[in-house]
Amino acid sequence: MFQLFVKMRDFFRLCRFAPLATGVVLLFALATGAGCDTASAPDRTVTDALGRSVAVPDTVQRVVPLAPNLTELAVAAGGADRLRAVTVSDNYPPALVDTLPRVQTLPVDYEALVQHSPDLVLATDQVNSPGDADPLAQMGVPTYFFSFDAVDDIFTSIETLGTLMRTESDAQARADTLRRAFDALRTATESVPRPRVLMLVGDETLYAFGGPSYVHTLIEAAGGTSITDHFESAAPTLSEEFVLQEAPDVIIGLFEAEAPTEHLLRLHPTWDVVPALQNDRVYTVDADLVSRPGPRVVQGAYRIATLLHHDRALPAPPSLRLP
């Protein structure tokens, strides 16, 4: 009886290590398996925006982006047919993303991700942590990181994606179109009087864009001056006093509100003396056109320009329908 008990005890002690052992075996199988199946011998080593060296297969065929703007950029670069999955937050272009499987990326659902056996994963340091790439690297899946500090980084990333996916000519054409459209807007608003613009992310808690953001360039191209470009932090929480003292001429909200002026006045009654509220110049803009660094920021800039200068002739916004 006692011996049986000892044997059982030893057996259970061993059992404790069973999951670990299984895990090690599985990981090994995954690492070797994933390496063999998907990546044909990598023959290119590229350097991404974070300075990491990434070994990329010669012809990238199976791409999974880890953020919605990367989906839009990959499509703009002519790689719509290379996408194998998108994130749970993707919504554009609807005709494409609604047909693709979805993967959770915050935090990354690695199991779901490797099921699509990507040969290239796209990431951005604004959404994804560089550490997210390590488990993927162990399984032989390369991750390319993008960074979007300035508007031009967005156009350049389309060209980069073209190089990665070997769709250079499509990507170049698209990037040129976007650059020309953006420059045309800049030229058109060069000599207009510039209203002082406050761009708000939050309506009640006053999140805004700080100095390091490309959003100020969008506002500038649209013929305005952003009043939050002197903050050091990327996402400052403004005080109500700041808005009263700065007295912006126009407020553009990335939130949803039926009647934006009344909405802000209800949340911040002391703002009744702010010119933007007095002159009923509070507008809302689709947040995806501004806060998502993708090809549609050009549309965002044109949209802001029509709000700031509705009484002036502006160039027609480019047709940016993504395939």
């Binding site: 939050g202 009640e204 808690t205 999140y207 109500e240 949340l267 911040h268 947040a287």
Partner: peptide
């Protein structure tokens, strides 16, 4: 998601925007 950061701010305790 827009309300998320506002909730976070409030959960950490804040007296801003008192009327």
């Amino acid at each position: 998601p827009g309300k998320l950061r506002a909730v976070l701010f409030w959960l950490l305790g804040s007296l801003s925007g008192t009327q």
